[in-house]
Amino acid sequence: MTTATEVQKKEGFFKRLFNRPQKEYWNAYTGGLVLGLVLFASFFLTGNGLGASGGLSRMVAFIEDIIAPGHVDRVPYLIKTAGGELNALDNWIVMVSFGAIIGGFISGLRNGRVKLETHRGPQITDKQRWFYAFVGGFLFAYGARLARGCTSGQALSGGATLSAGSWAVMFAIFGGAYLFAYAFRKLWN
């Protein structure tokens, strides 16, 4: 009897949690300013900036190390993160990535935006969108490893510390996207 009411209560709680009224996103300049403060705080306290692809990379190395530890020890690129006794997840960047997921979830929850849905352009189906999202993620991550960092680790963090190479990467990312935007206009318009 008590369990039944608890379940009911729980459902009520979750319903209330996930069905909050959906709020507007922040003003872009406000968001930028707060992001700048987070980035500065990171550098100020730790000497390191932000990053996302590095955490994902270690996730891959961690999974590979479970499935095929022998293989990890033979691939030079993986040895650095997961070779031998190394735990690929034992690194600060993994914490930042996990934190980003938690932070995104908290913000989404507070503002009623945690919802199972697919965002896509009007001319394609959900399934097509999923396919392109997968391909895009594949390409972006490949490029990010090649450039030693993504929009966060290179463009944002390196941009603020005025690294010459990071500015080159930043222009290449935006340049590449604008260059191919017309070719892929059907996906979004």
Partner: peptide, 10 residues
């Protein structure tokens, strides 16, 4: 790498 990321982005 940046150009590849740009394509991945769009």
């Amino acid at each position: 790498g940046g150009l590849v990321m740009g394509v991945g982005f769009i």
